[in-house]
Amino acid sequence: MTPVQRRRMIWVLLLLLASALATTLVAFALQRNIAYLYTPAEVLRGEVDPQSRFRLGGMVVKGSFQRATGSLEAHFVVTDGDATLPVSTSRILPDMFREGTAVVASGRLQDGRFIADEVLAKHDENYVPKEVADKMGQAHRKHDVPVAPAGAP
């Protein structure tokens, strides 16, 4: 092998090593920021690491919304039809947030209560985000309970 070929080989190996290192660092950074979607039943069955950040999807139970007077602190209950989970947030709720509508909340579990950093809601009461509908449908199929399609009245 000539000195020129040897130098090229070293550069190629260094380039491959640098690419592998960069890919590994990006993968670790992305893995830390991933928030998986779970339903209340999955959370209560223990399928979620209690210290991890995740998204909770389901429907806001009618009559469960409470807001402290003069505060942004809000409490409500989310259900998937099989289980319910209380949710608290001190953030501004979206204008479209209503009882009986689908929500996706991002946050962590703390003392049996979901503490939401962000709450997303959709304006149409018949709309359920696809991933929430799929999860809720899976839960109902496991228990042989019929579930209406997302767009059904």
Rank of each mutant, 00 (worst) to 15 (best):
M1P: 06
P3Q: 11
V4P: 01
V4N: 14
Q5A: 13
Q5G: 08
R6L: 07
R6S: 07
L15N: 08
L15E: 06
L16G: 13
L17W: 02
A18H: 03
A18D: 01
A20F: 13
L21C: 11
L21G: 12
T23Y: 14
L25E: 12
V26C: 03
V26E: 10
F28S: 11
A29D: 13
A29S: 13
L30C: 07
Q31K: 12
Q31S: 09
R32T: 14
R32Y: 09
N33C: 04
I34P: 04
A35R: 14
A35I: 06
Y36F: 09
Y36K: 12
L37T: 07
Y38H: 08
P40M: 07
A41Y: 00
E42L: 15
E42R: 14
L44C: 01
L44E: 09
R45Q: 15
E47V: 10
E47G: 09
V48M: 13
D49N: 14
R53D: 02
R55E: 10
R55N: 07
L56C: 09
G57C: 06
K62V: 15
R67Y: 03
A68N: 08
A68H: 02
T69S: 10
G70A: 11
H75S: 11
V77S: 01
V77A: 00
V78T: 01
T79Y: 01
D80S: 10
G81C: 10
A83H: 09
T84A: 03
P86V: 12
V87S: 01
S88R: 12
T89H: 04
R91K: 10
R91P: 00
L93Q: 05
L93I: 12
L93P: 00
P94F: 05
D95F: 06
R98E: 15
E99N: 09
E99S: 11
V103T: 03
S106L: 11
S106M: 08
G107W: 11
L109E: 02
Q110H: 10
D111E: 13
D111S: 13
D111V: 06
G112P: 09
G112H: 14
R113D: 05
F114G: 00
I115E: 09
I115V: 13
I115D: 04
D117I: 11
D117R: 15
D117A: 10
E118S: 05
L120E: 09
L120G: 04
